[in-house]
């Protein structure tokens, strides 16, 4: 690539994924300044993720003519698809529990929103990926699925992969779809 003149800009999708990572990173740094304790920051990141997930799912459904999921495996596939659509690459789905109620999303050798993050030693309890947990939880809640999500492995803390464990709790029957009063 010549150093003279303008460089070609990257493909728009990749571009926005980088921008998302940068913005999220700067936000985490700012929240950290405000709250100082990593545990409090984690809670804020979960809520932030929830707020985003709740809106994201509508956009996802609008663009992807998908029928209602019949079982949890299909749900897992949709979540996987959503990650590809919004962040540019998808996790592997695996580690299914024998009951079929629990699965993992696994990103090998990376973290989907924190490629270049290096943790200072005093912040090892900060859950950088917590926003992903909140987003998945919020999104699934909007389609009447209640889940509990934990971070099983975190690449940024030295593990080989980033792994989110998603456990099905129950179907939510009483919430009305948004928009219907």
């Amino acid at each position: 690539m010549s150093a003279k003149g303008k460089a070609p800009l990257l493909d728009n999708n990749k571009v926005n994924a980088d921008l998302i990572k940068l913005t999220y990173g700067a936000l985490v740094a700012q929240i950290l300044k405000d709250y100082e304790k990593p545990e409090d920051v984690n809670k804020q990141l979960e809520k932030l993720g929830y707020n985003i997930g709740v809106r994201l799912v509508e956009d996802f459904i609008a663009h992807h003519n998908i029928p209602r999921c019949l079982d949890f495996r299909q749900t897992a596939e949709r979540v996987q698809q959503a990650f590809r659509f919004y962040l540019g690459f998808q996790p592997a789905v695996g580690n299914w529990a024998p009951t079929g109620n629990e699965f993992s999303l696994i990103w090998d050798n990376t973290n989907p929103i924190g490629d270049f993050v290096e943790f200072p030693d005093n912040l090892r309890t900060l859950q950088y990926s917590r926003v992903l947990c909140g987003a998945i939880r919020g999104g699934l809640e909007m389609v009447q699925i209640d889940v509990a999500i934990t971070i099983a492995k975190e690449f940024l803390l030295g593990d080989q992969a980033t792994e989110l464990r998603i456990r099905f709790n129950k179907r939510l029957e009483d919430a009305l779809p948004i928009g219907e009063d």
């Binding site: 728009n12 926005n16 994924a17 998302i20 913005t23 809106r55 956009d59 919004y86 540019g88």
Partner: peptide
């Protein structure tokens, strides 16, 4: 796609 997510994040 990612643009939507970015807009959401920026507004959140």
């Amino acid at each position: 796609g990612p643009s939507y997510l970015y807009n959401l994040l920026a507004n959140e």
